[in-house]
Design a protein around this nucleic acid. Structure first.
Lengths: 228, 228
DNA sequence: TGATTGTTTCGATCGTGATCGAACAATCAA
DNA sequence: TTGATTGTTCGATCACGATCGAAACAATCA
């Protein structure tokens, strides 16, 4: 009836509880099979298949066939950002789930956002990099400075030598719990991998939660101090 | 699987076509009445009321009562940002719908708002009166100064000698097209009557549109100049 | 004061879409 | 080949929520 993009279609897609559960499960960044997603959503495989078909058709998820499995994942980081933004609105609207689970504090502290670190830890890392001039905001864009690249190199974070055209090196992503930015993009992914590889932190199975070990925690705070 | 905010609730809210139309209409930043939103969404006022109640309850829109109208607007910029992000996703999905609204420019320029002038002209008159100290904002209230009363008297606008208790002399009214205030109340009505009586402007039958004549237009701009 | 316009409440209807059972297709392991 | 696992298609069912008519309520107008 009106001009402009049809946001109702997208929103209605996300608006179904089963599909929303699937999408939130995929926010872990892990590719899941149709069956696993069915279990996550609490529906039968038939229903899951139906929903996944619609999500894929709308370009919200992408799939990869492998043997007799189909691995689904979020289509791109824009979708992840949208879901994060929506989480923020839902939080502030008081539309939390019936019961705020015991896991929630942990989620606020540190969690996976698609493929990078979010939560208080993610925000702190972002702020620290910014305060020390390793990261520079340029309007919508975000750039890693030469010093920043050196810093990450010294730390041991592996970054590709050449820029990728399709996926930016650095990108800011809005945090639903902190309402602040955290680091996304290739560097964000690399940073999370670094934390996991070095044993600073671990993933909690079937959840977006990231737990830092005692030593990892102190190293993290030493590395990403806020006061220079 | 069940932790975190309930995004399905928010998404389902936006996912209804009628509500999505309303929200997109509010994306202009303009506050609209429940009736206008009903027309925008292509539903009856009853349905509109139902939807607006739910949107307000969820904190997506805020409302401001003004007389027998209720002006709705987006609750905050976060909601706008969410809709923006969703539009982007919808665009990529190829979920667009094409159609344009033709008649609007005239309405935006100048029109009747019950009994006073609204639109760009109404906003300009309001701003001019305010800038020259003829009108003073006092919180929610609005007062005509002695100078202001003299100015209108010199111009030839007829105002009642004594204050009316039931209806205020001056009142600010939120503008449909400009999201700015314009002059309502007895003085607003008197001003519009003045324009019509003097032949500066005419009403268009069966419409809220007000058309200024060439001479009326120049006189209006001379009378309500913005630079002192 | 009654008349008019804007908004809401209530009740009933009705269509859309989620859901699952059952059958089918594809893959893997013997 | 056979049987087991995984995923999809089809059809039927069913519940939820959007919608509107009627009527009440609220605020102005005349």
């Amino acid at each position: 009836m009106k001009e402009g993009p049809n946001i109702a279609g997208i929103a209605a897609l996300i608006g179904d509880p089963a599909r929303a559960n699937m999408l939130q499960a995929l926010m872990t960044g892990v590719a899941l099979t149709a069956g696993e997603l069915a279990q996550e959503a609490g529906v039968t495989p038939q229903t899951s298949s139906f929903h996944l078909g619609r999500l894929a058709e709308a370009g919200l998820v992408s799939l990869r066939k492998q043997g007799r499995h189909k691995y689904y994942s979020l289509a791109n980081s824009d979708v992840a950002a949208l879901l994060e933004a929506m989480s923020g609105i839902a939080m502030r609207s008081g539309m939390t789930r019936v019961r705020t689970g015991p896991k929630e504090p942990e989620l606020r502290r540190s969690r996976v956002c698609y493929n990078h670190l979010a939560g208080e830890y993610g925000v702190q890392a972002y702020d620290s990099l910014l305060a020390r001039g390793f990261l520079v905001e340029d309007g919508e864009q975000l750039h890693l400075t030469g010093d920043g690249r050196g810093f990450l190199y010294e730390l041991g974070v592996v970054l590709p030598d050449k820029e990728n055209k399709r996926r930016p090196l650095c990108k800011s992503c809005l945090d639903w719990s902190a309402r602040r930015s955290h680091l996304a993009g290739i560097a964000g992914t690399a940073l999370l991998s670094f934390f996991l590889d070095q044993g600073w932190a671990k993933r909690v199975d079937g959840s977006r939660i990231i737990t830092f070990s005692r030593e990892g925690d102190s190293r993290f705070h030493a590395t990403f101090s806020l006061q220079d």
